[in-house]
Each structure stands twice: as structure tokens, then as C-alpha cells.
Amino acid sequence: MTRRIAIVGNGSVPEGLAATIDSADTVIRFNLCRSAGPGGVRTDIVAVCNTGRPALEMLAGGQWKASGSVRQAREIWCVRAPETFAALRGPLARSHPDLDDFCDDYTAGFAAFCEATGRSLKIVPAAAHRALDVSLAAFDPTLYVVPSSGLVTIAHVLESVAAAGDRVCIAGFGHEGWQWHPFAAERRWVEAHIAAGRLERLDG
């Protein structure tokens, strides 16, 4: 059967989409799930940055673990393959010394949380990140460190999760934020996939 997969970023979600998002077969949110509310409440999967300060913040206290979105999620996805970020540590120490904790890996903490709460853990494979770097090159990215977790998740769903005929929809992606993500190229990548009929942007 055809499924509808909604991937909801932490950016602004247009009014009137909550019911549309909640009616999807699968809803994926990110990190602190700031999209919950205006972007509906259903959450099946929480995709997390499992390295650096965002991971430490989520695991260090009880707020993330006790949030309504995380409590209802059946899966946690770690979007940063540990081997990819271990390999980045040396080059980043030379090129971006201020990102000294960016590659600190907390995958084990998310694995322990999933084991203790009966959730599934998925690690997006390093090959997905490599393939995305290759495809982003066609859109003239400026110098960047890594693609955003949102784009890694979208690409992974398109290539490895969605079956033929499934509708993959996105909302809450403004393609702006941290300076070391290639957001201009990411926007062009997304629009190219929309034009090709592989992706749909929910616009209210």
C-alpha cells in the first residue's frame, strides 16, 4: 500500500498543516521536536544529532526524554554515522579548531535510552552521507562542514526507506541556520527533487 511519510523540520510550519501531518502514515521530527504543536503532534521517529552539543543537551537532562514527542516515538534515528565523524575530527581540528567538540559521539547514550525504553535505534549509514555529499556537489555548495541533519534524513528516506509509490512530504524546512551547513545548495537539491516528483513540500 502507498504510504505518506511526513518529515517535519524545526523551522516555521505554515498554518493549517497540523491535521495533514498527523494523518501521515509516518511522521519524522528532529532533536527537540520544536515543530510539535503548529506542525501537529504525531511523532513516530525522532531523528537526532548524535554528536556534539545537541546530543549532550538531549541526553544530559530529563526534558528531552520526557517530552511528549519522544515518549510516543517508536524509533530514534542517529543521523551522524560515528565512523564519518571520527574521520572528520582530525581535519576539523586543523580547519575549524573552534568545533573541538563537534565530533564527540554520543550514539551509545541514545542506544542505552532505546534499550531501556523499548524503542528501536537506527544509525543512518555513512554511505548515505557520502552519497549526499556527491549529489550536493552539483548545486555549487559553498565551503561547508557537513550537510544538515534534515537533508541527511530526507535523502536517507528517499533512497532507503520510501518504497515505490510512497509520498515523501516535507514541512518546516527554511534552509537556513548554522553557517557550516550548505543551506543554499540544500534548497536547490530539495527543489530539484520536488521538480522530479520524488518529494513534495507541504505549503498549507
Rank of each mutant, 00 (worst) to 15 (best):
C78N: 11
T51M: 01
A60Y: 05
L59K: 01
V48A: 04
E75F: 05
R89F: 00
I5Q: 05
M58Y: 01
R74H: 13
A55K: 10
S69P: 13
A55F: 06
Q63E: 14
C33T: 08
S69K: 06
C33R: 11
T51W: 00
P82V: 10
A86H: 10
I7A: 15
A6V: 06
E15C: 03
G16A: 03
V41R: 12
G37H: 07
T20C: 02
E15A: 14
C78K: 04
S23I: 01
G40M: 10
Q63T: 06
V13T: 08
F85M: 14
W64A: 07
R29K: 04
N50S: 13
W77N: 08
A73C: 10
S23Q: 15
E57R: 15
V46Y: 15
A36M: 11
A19N: 03
S23C: 10
G9E: 02
T43D: 12
V41F: 06
A60P: 02
G52T: 04
P82Q: 12
G39H: 02
W77L: 09
V48C: 02
V8F: 09
P38G: 02
T20E: 13
G61N: 14
A60K: 13
F30D: 13
G11K: 11
G62C: 02
E57C: 08
L88R: 15
I5Y: 09
W77Q: 08
T26R: 14
D22M: 07
N31T: 09
V70P: 00
L32H: 06
E75D: 09
C49R: 11
R74C: 06
I7T: 10
V70D: 00
T84I: 11
R42L: 05
V70T: 04
L32K: 05
M58G: 00
E83T: 14
G52C: 04
G68F: 00
F30G: 11
M58D: 00
A18D: 04
A86E: 11
Q63G: 00
L32D: 08
T84L: 03
V8E: 05
W64T: 03
I7S: 12
S35P: 02
Q72S: 15
A55C: 05
R42Y: 08
A81F: 15
A55Y: 03
N31E: 09
G40W: 09
I28L: 13
N10I: 04
R80G: 12
A55M: 08
V79L: 15
G39R: 01
N50T: 09
L88H: 15
C33Y: 04
S35H: 02
M58I: 01
L88S: 14
P38F: 03
I7H: 13
G9Q: 05
G68N: 02
E75W: 04
V41D: 10
S12Q: 13
V48K: 03
A36P: 01
F85Q: 10
G16M: 05
G61T: 11
R80N: 15
I7G: 09
L17R: 13
G61I: 00
A24W: 12
W77V: 07
P14K: 14
N31L: 14
G16S: 01
S67C: 14
G68K: 02
S23R: 15
P14Y: 13
A73G: 07
V41A: 10
T43M: 09
I5F: 12
A66T: 14
A19S: 12
A73Y: 04
G11D: 03
P54S: 08
F30L: 11
M58A: 02
R34F: 06
V13N: 02
S67T: 03
I5T: 05
G39E: 01
P14Q: 14
T51Q: 08
L56N: 07
V70W: 03
S35K: 07
